[in-house]
C-alpha cells in the first residue's frame, strides 16, 4: 500500500440520530488527487465534513500526516493545514472579494504573509483583482468557486478537501476550474475531491472511490473507474 497522508478508516458519522456514513474508508497519498463519486445523498459531503471536524464521527479513525484527528475541531484542523471548500455556499456573500481573502489569512500571525499571499492571488487570478471591491455575493458561480479556492490557498494548506467544485457551472467554466485544481496539485498539494458529475474529476484523479448509501462500493484508479462498465452505466450516464 502507498504511504498515506490522510487515512479514513471505517468511519461512522451522521447528524444526531441519523447515521449517514456506515463505515467508510479511504486514503490519500502525498501529492495525490483522489476523487470520491457517488449519487446524490450517498454521504460525500458528510464524509468531508467529518474529516474537517464540522461533525464528529461516532466510530472509526481519521489520521492526517501521522497524527490522529478523529475528534479535532475545524479550527484545529485548519491550523494543521487542512483546507475545506464546501459545496455551494463557500464564500462570504456580504463581504467584498478583498475581505473574503483577508478572512482567509486571518489566522496567520504574520499579517505581511497574508498580504503577500493576496498579492500572489491577484497575479494568479486577475479576475479577482478586477473585482476586489465587489461584494462576493454578486460574483458569477465560477468566480465564486475561484474565490473560494484562492481564499483557501492563503494558508498554504497541505491538503485540500473540495466538495463538488463544478456544481452548477457551465462546461467551459468547469474546464477552467479543473485547470486551477490541476495546477494546485502540480505544486504538490494533495486533493480529495467529491463530485457527482464525475467524468472530469475521474480523468484528473490518480485514484477514485465510489460511495453508495454511506458505504464504499468501488475503488480503482481514476482511469479504471472511468472505463468501468458499472460506473459508466450508473454514474456517468452512458
Amino acid at each position: 500500500m502507498t504511504e498515506s497522508f490522510l487515512e479514513v478508516r471505517d468511519v461512522y458519522s451522521g447528524y444526531g440520530k441519523i447515521e449517514v456514513l456506515h463505515g467508510v474508508s479511504l486514503t490519500v497519498a502525498p501529492k495525490e488527487i483522489v476523487c470520491v463519486i457517488g449519487p446524490n445523498g450517498s454521504g460525500k459531503s458528510t464524509l468531508l465534513k467529518t474529516i474537517v471536524g464540522l461533525i464528529q464521527p461516532t466510530r472509526g479513525f481519521i489520521q492526517f500526516d501521522g497524527s490522529e484527528i478523529s475528534h479535532k475541531e475545524p479550527e484545529e484542523n485548519v491550523e494543521l493545514g487542512i483546507a475545506y471548500i464546501p459545496q455551494g455556499k463557500n464564500i462570504f456573500p456580504s463581504l467584498t472579494v478583498m475581505e473574503n481573502l483577508e478572512m482567509g489569512g486571518i489566522s496567520l500571525k504574520d499579517s505581511r504573509k497574508a498580504r503577500n499571499a493576496i498579492q500572489e492571488i491577484w497575479e494568479r487570478y486577475p479576475i479577482l483583482q478586477k473585482r476586489r471591491k465587489i461584494k462576493a455575493g454578486s460574483l458569477s458561480g465560477g468566480e465564486k468557486q475561484v474565490l473560494a479556492m484562492a481564499r483557501a490557498s492563503i494558508l498554504q494548506p497541505r491538503l485540500i478537501l473540495l466538495d463538488e467544485p463544478s456544481i452548477g457551472l457551465a462546461p467551459k467554466v468547469i474546464d477552467e476550474m479543473y485547470h486551477h485544481i490541476n495546477r494546485m496539485n502540480r505544486e504538490g498539494i494533495p486533493l480529495l475531491i467529491v463530485e457527482q458529475n464525475a467524468r472530469k474529476a475521474l480523468r484528473l484523479a490518480h485514484r477514485a472511490y465510489v460511495l453508495d448509501l454511506g458505504r464504499n462500493r468501488l475503488e480503482d484508479t481514476g482511469e479504471g473507474l472511468l472505463n468501468n462498465e458499472e460506473v459508466q452505466h450508473l454514474y456517468l450516464g452512458r
Binding site: 474537517v52 475545524p74 484542523n77 491550523e79 464546501p86
Partner: peptide
C-alpha cells in the same frame, strides 16, 4: 461553519 473552517476565531 464557513467562518470556522476559514480559521476565524468564532
Amino acid at each position: 461553519e464557513l467562518a470556522r473552517v476559514t480559521g476565524i476565531n468564532a
